[in-house]
Design a protein around this nucleic acid. Structure first.
Lengths: 159, 159
DNA sequence: GTCAGTGCAAACTTTTTGCAACTAC
DNA sequence: GTAGTTGCAAAAAGTTTGCACTGAC
């Protein structure tokens, strides 16, 4: 599917969602949706607001929070609660991916694996209907591992 | 392994960790470790502090945050960043489990599956060494699903 | 015209920080 | 004795709320 079609499609979904739930179709809401679907990967509330201001469309924090709540409910956005900072992500037509989080430097890397995805999606759950999931894998990235190894060697030389 | 042994063992691990990193072995730190390993399942900072006060051991917020940082680093505690609320959990000698989170009522249920655990643990990761992981599965629990179905039926009767 | 939605600022919650007093070493 | 740690209170960061004004319907 082309990017253009995705943008049209999510606008359609959001419009239907708003109508169905008796919400108004304000320009702010569609501007936020547009901006979110122009961002690849994660973003914070602050990044989103700054990015909107760069595009000369000023919206208040309150409106951003309000709209994100709607988009989450409409399943057009996913929320990640990483260590103290909420990160959001567009979710329509996006390949499910997993997160590698380095406990040293805090960097988050996406990791795609269809095998893993299928394994998780096909598991039988007791009295529960899964709509989506988030997998966070913590550990040490190769960069930090290298730095640690160098440090350890220096330590040994001292001893 | 018996509970008693676990308590002794984690104290040992924590002692070694503190010594290795040049930290002091204060009574507060061991009291917090003790309390955490007496709690089954998740707990918030507030719950932990209240629980400690019930046991007549008063510690400040700052000390709890400080000690939790150490325990996380020592891999004796796991942190979950659920929607806006940080939850912690003891991790030594605890069977890895997954989380079913209801998007309606917010309840979190643990879900154990060795198959799933093995699948996740054995996946090959690019330039990354995993130490642990968290899987959050979002959806609707059977209770909320029932309520939703009833609501839908009532809606239909009206129409 | 009406009322949901917006912007703004204040309030609230959770976590971090600065500092004086304390204590493990 | 000294430097790391604690408790307290203040500050910071993130999110929610109250209210007057605006604009989608």
């Amino acid at each position: 599917m082309e990017d253009c079609n995705v943008n049209i499609k999510v606008k359609q979904i959001f419009t239907e969602y708003l109508e169905k739930n008796g919400h108004r179709k304000t320009p702010e809401r569609f501007a936020i949706l547009d901006k979110i679907y122009s961002i690849d990967g994660h973003f914070s509330i602050e990044q989103l607001q700054n990015s909107m201001e760069d595009s000369k469309f000023r919206v208040s924090r309150a409106t951003i929070y309000n709209t994100l709540t709607l988009l989450l409910d409409a399943a057009l956005v996913i929320k990640h609660s990483f260590d103290n900072s909420s990160q959001y992500e567009k979710s329509y037509n996006i390949q499910t991916h997993h997160h590698l989080i380095c406990t040293e430097c805090g960097k988050v890397k996406d990791f795609k694996s269809d095998d893993l995805r299928k394994n998780i999606e096909h598991i039988r759950l007791p009295r529960f209907t899964m709509t989506h999931y988030s997998l966070y894998m913590y550990g040490i990235c190769s960069d930090c591992k290298r730095i640690k190894t160098i440090k350890r060697k220096k330590q040994k030389q001292k001893e």
